[in-house]
């Protein structure tokens, strides 16, 4: 797109590229390299760019002390199941909105989408006593269900706009072929829409995976704690000094999802944006 023949243009381009790349990627590098530094090297006024010797002690203590692995498991479990639940609900609702005509359609869609002006923190004020009333406070199930709040409206819209551009003729052909609506949905529509389903699942997963507010408030026991609040409670307190441990634990907490996203990112970038801005 840009014409970079002159050296000025090249230099300008490179400078901007390096500047933003540095802002984006250096923090990750720094966290990683800090995780491998022994405390002596970590706490000096003049930091080293590379770890002098690859010290693995922080990783050891991150795993052996505290409940990092259990918390990771809890996080993955709640986030994955809520993401799948969310994507399933969103697929059904999105299909209903995209491919059928009925009087209540537009108001219902607007109602669901307007949920974006309901602050999550405000909803929590009611969700907390609700879960308490049905004995789901401090359970993984309760947290999983509550996570619906974050992504359902936008996920529904994402599936809606995906289904919207599926050709009607495909559905009509199946109809003429004699398939019922339900069969059309799971034999024709969903297999074709698998990429969109994955995108929405990932999107919903990100919300729950990144969450701190709900998991911190709705989970109180060590056994059900997820990774976000777990890290926070362990490493950030008035006089925390274990930055090496914090970085190592952070690395471990982030790694599984980073791997998954590295594998799936191509379709994800396109998918997330397709619904939101057109």
């Amino acid at each position: 797109m840009f014409e970079l023949r002159s050296w000025q243009a090249k230099a300008g381009f490179m400078a901007l590229l390096l500047l933003i790349a540095f802002f984006l990627f250096f923090p990750v590098y720094w966290a990683l390299s800090s995780a491998f530094k022994g405390n002596g090297e970590l706490y000096q006024m003049d930091p080293t760019l590379f770890p002098n010797d690859f010290y693995l002690g922080h990783f050891m203590t991150a795993i052996s002390e505290g409940n990092l692995l259990l918390q990771l498991k809890n996080s993955l479990l709640t986030s994955t199941s809520s993401a799948l639940l969310n994507a399933a609900l969103a697929s059904l609702a999105g299909y209903s909105f995209a491919k059928f005509e009925y009087p209540a359609k537009k108001p219902l869609m607007l109602l669901i989408l307007s949920a974006q002006m309901f602050p999550f923190g405000v909803l929590l004020i009611s969700i907390y006593p609700m879960l308490q009333a049905v004995n789901l406070l401090d359970t993984k199930l309760g947290l999983t269900i509550s996570y619906i709040v974050f992504a359902l409206p936008v996920s529904t819209y994402m599936m809606y706009s995906y289904f919207k551009q599926l050709p009607n003729e495909l559905i009509e052909a199946a109809k003429v072929d004699g398939a019922s609506n339900l069969k059309i949905f799971y034999r024709i529509v969903m297999p074709i829409s698998f990429p969109a389903f994955i995108t929405v699942t990932l999107y919903a997963f990100m919300w729950s995976w990144n969450d701190l507010l709900y998991s911190m408030t709705l989970i109180t026991s060590e056994e059900n704690r997820t990774v976000g609040p777990g890290l926070l409670l362990r490493y950030i307190n008035e006089n925390n000094s274990d930055w090496g441990g914090a970085m190592a634990a952070s690395f471990l907490a982030a790694a599984p999802v980073v791997v998954v996203f590295a594998l799936l990112q191509k379709q994800f970038i396109g998918g997330v944006t397709s619904g939101a801005v057109k």
């Binding site: 003729e169 003429v176 024709i188």
Partner: peptide
């Protein structure tokens, strides 16, 4: 009547083949 009960079959402009 539903299309499937009408003893008809249809060829669509876009062919509407099931891509998967």
């Amino acid at each position: 009547w539903q299309p499937s009960k009408r003893e008809i079959a249809m060829v669509f402009q876009s062919y509407a083949l099931y891509p998967h």
